[in-house]
Amino acid sequence: MKKTILLVSALISTFTFANVDTVKRNLEKNYPDIKIDNLQPTEMKGIYSGFMSGQLVYVNDDAQHLLAGTMVRLKDKENLSKNLLIKQNSIDWNALNLNDAVKIVKGSGTRKIVVFSDPNCPYCKNLEEELKKLKDVTIYTFIVPFKPQSIIPSKQVFCEKNPAQAWTDLISKGIQPSSKATCENPIDRNLALARTIGITGTPSIIFSNGFKVSGAYPAEKIEEIFKEFGL
Protein backbone atom coordinates (compact mmCIF):
# COMPACT_ATOMS: atom_id res chain seq x y z
CA MET A 1 0.00 0.00 0.00
CA LYS A 2 2.81 2.35 0.95
CA LYS A 3 4.57 1.68 -2.37
CA THR A 4 1.35 2.43 -4.25
CA ILE A 5 0.97 5.76 -2.46
CA LEU A 6 4.58 6.68 -3.27
CA LEU A 7 4.07 5.77 -6.94
CA VAL A 8 0.90 7.85 -7.20
CA SER A 9 2.67 10.76 -5.49
CA ALA A 10 5.52 10.54 -7.98
CA LEU A 11 3.10 10.55 -10.91
CA ILE A 12 1.21 13.54 -9.52
CA SER A 13 4.52 15.35 -9.01
CA THR A 14 5.52 14.62 -12.62
CA PHE A 15 2.31 16.08 -14.06
CA THR A 16 2.21 18.99 -11.63
CA PHE A 17 5.66 20.23 -12.53
CA ALA A 18 5.43 19.71 -16.28
CA ASN A 19 5.92 23.15 -17.78
CA VAL A 20 7.31 24.99 -20.77
CA ASP A 21 10.89 24.10 -19.82
CA THR A 22 9.92 20.43 -19.70
CA VAL A 23 8.41 20.60 -23.17
CA LYS A 24 11.50 22.38 -24.51
CA ARG A 25 13.79 19.72 -23.02
CA ASN A 26 11.65 16.92 -24.45
CA LEU A 27 11.69 18.56 -27.88
CA GLU A 28 15.46 19.01 -27.81
CA LYS A 29 15.93 15.43 -26.67
CA ASN A 30 13.48 13.70 -29.01
CA TYR A 31 13.38 15.97 -32.07
CA PRO A 32 16.28 18.45 -32.08
CA ASP A 33 15.57 19.49 -35.67
CA ILE A 34 12.10 20.79 -34.81
CA LYS A 35 12.12 24.41 -33.67
CA ILE A 36 9.00 25.78 -31.97
CA ASP A 37 9.07 29.40 -30.82
CA ASN A 38 7.08 31.17 -28.13
CA LEU A 39 5.99 28.01 -26.32
CA GLN A 40 3.35 28.66 -23.68
CA PRO A 41 0.69 26.67 -21.80
CA THR A 42 -2.88 26.66 -23.10
CA GLU A 43 -6.17 26.26 -21.27
CA MET A 44 -6.10 22.57 -22.21
CA LYS A 45 -4.08 20.67 -19.61
CA GLY A 46 -0.88 19.17 -20.96
CA ILE A 47 -1.09 21.04 -24.27
CA TYR A 48 1.25 23.90 -25.19
CA SER A 49 1.05 26.34 -28.07
CA GLY A 50 3.89 27.69 -30.17
CA PHE A 51 4.87 28.83 -33.64
CA MET A 52 6.77 26.67 -36.13
CA SER A 53 7.85 28.48 -39.30
CA GLY A 54 5.18 31.08 -38.57
CA GLN A 55 2.38 28.54 -38.19
CA LEU A 56 0.48 28.07 -34.93
CA VAL A 57 0.96 24.52 -33.59
CA TYR A 58 0.24 22.61 -30.40
CA VAL A 59 2.45 20.06 -28.68
CA ASN A 60 1.92 17.85 -25.63
CA ASP A 61 4.10 17.48 -22.50
CA ASP A 62 6.32 14.69 -23.77
CA ALA A 63 6.69 16.33 -27.20
CA GLN A 64 5.56 13.21 -29.01
CA HIS A 65 2.50 14.68 -30.69
CA LEU A 66 2.12 17.84 -32.75
CA LEU A 67 -1.22 19.34 -33.77
CA ALA A 68 -2.06 22.15 -36.17
CA GLY A 69 -5.56 23.57 -36.20
CA THR A 70 -8.07 25.60 -34.22
CA MET A 71 -8.63 25.37 -30.48
CA VAL A 72 -12.11 26.48 -29.37
CA ARG A 73 -13.32 26.90 -25.78
CA LEU A 74 -16.70 25.19 -25.81
CA LYS A 75 -18.15 27.17 -22.90
CA ASP A 76 -18.38 30.40 -24.87
CA LYS A 77 -17.27 29.25 -28.36
CA GLU A 78 -14.19 31.48 -28.04
CA ASN A 79 -11.61 30.82 -30.77
CA LEU A 80 -8.41 30.62 -28.70
CA SER A 81 -6.22 29.98 -31.73
CA LYS A 82 -7.40 33.19 -33.35
CA ASN A 83 -6.57 35.14 -30.18
CA LEU A 84 -3.06 33.65 -30.12
CA LEU A 85 -2.48 34.52 -33.77
CA ILE A 86 -3.57 38.10 -33.19
CA LYS A 87 -1.35 38.42 -30.12
CA GLN A 88 1.65 36.90 -31.88
CA ASN A 89 1.26 39.07 -34.98
CA SER A 90 0.26 42.42 -33.53
CA ILE A 91 1.89 45.84 -33.59
CA ASP A 92 1.00 48.83 -31.43
CA TRP A 93 -0.76 51.07 -33.96
CA ASN A 94 -0.13 54.11 -31.75
CA ALA A 95 3.62 53.50 -32.01
CA LEU A 96 3.50 54.26 -35.74
CA ASN A 97 4.30 57.85 -36.67
CA LEU A 98 1.81 58.20 -39.53
CA ASN A 99 3.27 61.60 -40.43
CA ASP A 100 6.27 59.72 -41.86
CA ALA A 101 4.07 57.75 -44.26
CA VAL A 102 2.69 58.62 -47.68
CA LYS A 103 -1.06 58.98 -47.20
CA ILE A 104 -3.62 57.99 -49.83
CA VAL A 105 -7.34 58.26 -49.11
CA LYS A 106 -9.84 56.26 -51.17
CA GLY A 107 -13.54 57.08 -50.85
CA SER A 108 -14.56 57.83 -47.27
CA GLY A 109 -11.21 56.55 -45.99
CA THR A 110 -12.90 55.17 -42.87
CA ARG A 111 -10.90 51.94 -42.83
CA LYS A 112 -7.17 52.25 -42.23
CA ILE A 113 -4.10 50.18 -43.02
CA VAL A 114 -0.35 50.73 -42.93
CA VAL A 115 1.87 49.26 -45.63
CA PHE A 116 5.66 48.88 -45.52
CA SER A 117 6.93 48.90 -49.09
CA ASP A 118 10.11 49.07 -51.17
CA PRO A 119 9.79 50.60 -54.68
CA ASN A 120 11.97 47.87 -56.21
CA CYS A 121 10.21 44.96 -54.51
CA PRO A 122 8.18 43.01 -57.13
CA TYR A 123 5.73 41.74 -54.51
CA CYS A 124 5.17 45.33 -53.37
CA LYS A 125 4.22 46.21 -56.92
CA ASN A 126 1.74 43.33 -56.94
CA LEU A 127 0.25 44.48 -53.64
CA GLU A 128 -0.09 48.03 -54.96
CA GLU A 129 -2.34 46.76 -57.75
CA GLU A 130 -4.49 44.95 -55.19
CA LEU A 131 -4.73 48.04 -52.98
CA LYS A 132 -6.21 49.96 -55.91
CA LYS A 133 -9.23 47.65 -55.74
CA LEU A 134 -10.08 48.61 -52.15
CA LYS A 135 -12.76 51.19 -51.38
CA ASP A 136 -13.27 53.53 -48.44
CA VAL A 137 -9.78 53.01 -47.06
CA THR A 138 -6.88 55.21 -45.97
CA ILE A 139 -3.52 53.71 -46.86
CA TYR A 140 -0.41 54.90 -45.03
CA THR A 141 2.70 53.70 -46.85
CA PHE A 142 6.00 53.68 -44.99
CA ILE A 143 8.63 53.60 -47.71
CA VAL A 144 11.47 51.35 -46.56
CA PRO A 145 14.24 51.02 -49.16
CA PHE A 146 15.74 47.71 -48.12
CA LYS A 147 17.27 47.41 -51.58
CA PRO A 148 20.28 49.74 -52.09
CA GLN A 149 18.97 50.96 -55.47
CA SER A 150 15.75 52.08 -53.76
CA ILE A 151 17.33 54.57 -51.36
CA ILE A 152 17.70 57.61 -53.65
CA PRO A 153 14.28 57.46 -55.37
CA SER A 154 12.61 56.79 -52.01
CA LYS A 155 14.08 59.97 -50.58
CA GLN A 156 13.25 61.96 -53.72
CA VAL A 157 9.56 61.05 -53.42
CA PHE A 158 9.33 63.46 -50.50
CA CYS A 159 10.91 66.28 -52.53
CA GLU A 160 8.02 66.21 -54.99
CA LYS A 161 5.10 68.62 -54.80
CA ASN A 162 2.70 65.67 -54.41
CA PRO A 163 4.53 62.81 -52.63
CA ALA A 164 1.48 60.53 -52.82
CA GLN A 165 1.32 60.83 -56.61
CA ALA A 166 5.09 60.52 -56.88
CA TRP A 167 4.95 57.29 -54.86
CA THR A 168 2.12 55.90 -56.99
CA ASP A 169 4.02 56.69 -60.19
CA LEU A 170 7.19 55.12 -58.81
CA ILE A 171 5.73 51.89 -57.44
CA SER A 172 3.12 51.31 -60.15
CA LYS A 173 4.77 52.68 -63.29
CA GLY A 174 8.46 52.82 -62.46
CA ILE A 175 8.49 56.58 -63.08
CA GLN A 176 11.36 58.09 -61.12
CA PRO A 177 10.74 61.32 -59.17
CA SER A 178 11.67 64.32 -61.32
CA SER A 179 13.14 66.36 -58.48
CA LYS A 180 16.90 66.08 -58.08
CA ALA A 181 16.97 68.32 -55.02
CA THR A 182 17.65 67.08 -51.51
CA CYS A 183 15.01 67.63 -48.88
CA GLU A 184 13.92 66.55 -45.43
CA ASN A 185 12.59 62.99 -45.58
CA PRO A 186 11.63 60.21 -43.13
CA ILE A 187 13.48 57.34 -44.82
CA ASP A 188 16.03 56.77 -42.04
CA ARG A 189 13.24 56.93 -39.43
CA ASN A 190 11.15 54.48 -41.47
CA LEU A 191 14.00 51.99 -41.65
CA ALA A 192 14.58 52.32 -37.90
CA LEU A 193 10.87 51.82 -37.24
CA ALA A 194 10.81 48.68 -39.39
CA ARG A 195 13.70 47.22 -37.41
CA THR A 196 12.08 48.14 -34.10
CA ILE A 197 8.80 46.36 -34.85
CA GLY A 198 10.43 43.36 -36.49
CA ILE A 199 9.70 44.02 -40.15
CA THR A 200 12.57 42.62 -42.19
CA GLY A 201 10.88 42.20 -45.55
CA THR A 202 8.33 43.83 -47.80
CA PRO A 203 5.47 44.13 -48.31
CA SER A 204 3.95 44.05 -44.83
CA ILE A 205 0.45 45.20 -43.91
CA ILE A 206 -0.74 46.39 -40.50
CA PHE A 207 -4.45 46.80 -39.86
CA SER A 208 -5.82 49.46 -37.52
CA ASN A 209 -6.23 46.94 -34.69
CA GLY A 210 -2.49 46.20 -34.94
CA PHE A 211 -2.81 42.84 -36.72
CA LYS A 212 0.17 42.33 -39.06
CA VAL A 213 0.49 40.16 -42.14
CA SER A 214 3.29 39.81 -44.68
CA GLY A 215 3.07 39.37 -48.42
CA ALA A 216 1.14 40.61 -51.44
CA TYR A 217 -2.33 39.84 -50.12
CA PRO A 218 -5.10 39.95 -52.74
CA ALA A 219 -7.78 42.59 -52.22
CA GLU A 220 -10.44 40.00 -51.38
CA LYS A 221 -8.27 38.57 -48.61
CA ILE A 222 -7.70 42.05 -47.17
CA GLU A 223 -11.47 42.57 -47.23
CA GLU A 224 -11.93 39.28 -45.37
CA ILE A 225 -9.59 40.46 -42.63
CA PHE A 226 -11.46 43.77 -42.37
CA LYS A 227 -14.69 41.82 -41.98
CA GLU A 228 -13.22 39.27 -39.56
CA PHE A 229 -12.15 41.98 -37.13
CA GLY A 230 -15.05 44.32 -37.75
CA LEU A 231 -12.76 47.10 -39.00
Results as ranks from 00 to 15, higher is better:
Met71Val: 15
Thr110Leu: 07
Ser90His: 10
Leu85Ala: 01
Thr200Gln: 12
Gly198Pro: 03
Val157Phe: 00
Glu43Arg: 07
Val72Trp: 07
Gly210His: 02
Leu131Met: 11
Ile113Trp: 00
Lys82Thr: 05
Val157Lys: 10
Leu56Phe: 05
Glu160Gln: 15
Leu231Gln: 14
Pro32Leu: 06
Ile225Trp: 10
Glu128Tyr: 12
Ala10Thr: 12
Asn190Tyr: 02
Glu130Trp: 11
Phe51Met: 01
Gln176Pro: 00
Lys132Leu: 15
Val8Lys: 07
Ile222Val: 12
Ser53Pro: 05
Phe146Leu: 11
Ala194Pro: 09
Leu7Met: 09
Gly230Lys: 14
Lys227Arg: 13
Gln88Pro: 01
Cys183Val: 10
Leu27Met: 15
Ala68Asn: 07
Asp61Met: 06
Asp136Val: 09
Met52His: 05
Asp136Gly: 12
Ile152Glu: 15
Gly54Asn: 01
Gln40His: 10
Pro218Ala: 07
Ala10Leu: 15
Gly107Arg: 09
Asp92Met: 04
Leu191Ala: 08
Gly230Pro: 10
Arg189Ile: 00
Asn190Ile: 03
Leu134His: 12
Ser108Ile: 00
Gly210Leu: 02
Asn83Gly: 02
Ile91Gly: 01
Phe211Glu: 03
Leu127Gly: 14
Lys147Gly: 02
Ile34Ser: 07
Asp118Met: 11
Lys75Ala: 15
Pro32Gln: 09
Cys183Gly: 07
Lys87Cys: 01
Leu96Ala: 02
Ile225Cys: 03
Leu6Arg: 08
Val105Ala: 11
Thr4Trp: 06
Ala101Cys: 06
Leu80Glu: 09
Leu11Gly: 03
Leu85Ser: 10
Pro218Met: 10
Gly46Gln: 03
Val57Pro: 02
Asn38Pro: 03
Gly69Lys: 04
Val144Arg: 02
Asn26Val: 07
Gly69Phe: 01
Ala166Phe: 10
Ala181Gln: 15
Glu28Gly: 12
Ile139Ala: 03
Ile139Val: 10
Thr182Gln: 14
Leu7Lys: 05
Leu231Asn: 13
Tyr123His: 13
Gly46Pro: 00
Phe207Asn: 05
Leu74Asn: 06
Ile187Asp: 08
Thr196Val: 04
Ser49Cys: 04
Gln55Met: 09
Pro41Asp: 02
Gln64Val: 00
Lys221Arg: 14
Pro218Gly: 07
Val105Thr: 15
Gln64Met: 13
Ser90Trp: 04
Pro119Gln: 05
Gln156Asp: 02
Leu67Tyr: 15
Asp169Asn: 12
